[in-house]
């Protein structure tokens, strides 16, 4: 199934807003760092990984668990694009 990136970005945003910002996501931009903004704490990344693996049917390797792939909505979208292409 072709991946519609706009909808992926929307899904990821919805997940972040609901699970980390508890529906207070008005100010969240697509390039905002989760770590620098304190959105994701030391145990929160695993929630994100579980969501991505389940929703998109992918397996994320340990060496892919880096902020460069997962630290903003933009980065996640790009990472998913490369994983799913």
């Amino acid at each position: 199934m072709p991946l519609e990136m706009a909808s992926v970005t929307q899904q990821v945003r919805a997940f972040i807003v609901q699970n980390y910002l508890f529906d207070r996501g008005d100010q969240l931009t697509d390039d905002q760092s989760f770590l620098e903004s304190g959105i994701i704490d030391s145990t929160g990344v695993l929630e994100l990984v579980a969501f991505l693996e389940k929703t998109y049917g992918i397996a994320i390797d340990d060496d892919e668990l880096i902020p460069e792939n997962l630290d903003s909505i933009d980065r996640i979208s790009k990472f998913l694009k490369s994983k799913l292409s």
Partner: peptide, 20 residues
């Protein structure tokens, strides 16, 4: 109320939850 509802939903849905 809104943020508390979202937090409670996270627990009720059985999602992974963090220390915070």
């Amino acid at each position: 109320p809104q943020t508390v509802a979202a937090l409670a939903h996270k627990f009720r849905s059985g999602s992974n939850t963090s220390v915070a």
